[in-house]
């Protein structure tokens, strides 16, 4: 018998329920993946805020003690100035515009998780600025570093969101 004979054998077609089941399982996997990334995002934001708050408190305490006995000769790292100053309302306006263009995508868990993280980071940045200004105008390099770090993290998420909504 030659192989060509077998090419003429009958072909079986699977019932529609097979695709239906595959479709359902893919949907379920996608949902669990999105909610997992949302949980990780929230947890990371909370940890970041806690870390900043704790390190900031300890730094401020140290600086206050040193100022009483000596003077500070802090050298500002020029690398810190590399992040361009941006208008925060512009950033949120841009996100709003993107959301208007892609309302369905913007409402899903992933996009909402990113927006929440951006807001959390924004709040952390404001909180940091307020605390710094309340500490009798003591110049502190670590606060600047933290602020820059938060900004960087925020840009990353804005970039991610933009990419996601542009897809």
């Amino acid at each position: 018998m030659k192989n060509e004979i077998y090419q003429k054998l009958p072909v079986y077609h699977p019932p529609d329920r097979v695709w239906h089941n595959i479709h359902q399982k893919l949907d379920a996997e996608e949902k669990s993946r999105n909610s997992l990334s949302y949980i990780w995002g929230v947890a990371a934001s909370v940890l970041l805020i806690l870390f900043i708050a704790v390190s900031m408190t300890s730094n401020i305490k140290n600086v206050s003690k040193e100022v009483q006995i000596t003077y500070s000769e802090e050298h500002i790292d020029t690398l810190l100035t590399h992040i361009p100053a941006t208008n925060e309302s512009d950033e949120f306006q841009e996100i709003e515009n993107l959301c208007k263009a892609q309302p369905i995508k913007c409402d899903d868990e992933y996009a909402q998780s990113l927006i929440q993280q951006i807001r959390d980071l924004e709040n952390a940045s404001i909180e940091l600025s307020q605390q710094a200004s309340s500490e009798q105008n003591i110049p502190d390099l670590s606060i600047e570093k933290h602020k820059n770090y938060i900004q960087k993290e925020k840009y990353k998420r804005i970039k991610k969101l933009r990419r996601y909504l542009d897809e």
């Binding site: 072909v11 077609h13 097979v18 695709w19 595959i22 893919l26």
Partner: peptide, 18 residues
Amino acid sequence: ERRFQKLLYDRYCAAMFT
């Protein structure tokens, strides 16, 4: 993308099911 997954399934499902 579900549309492409369905197209891929439709293309190969009969041969694979056989």
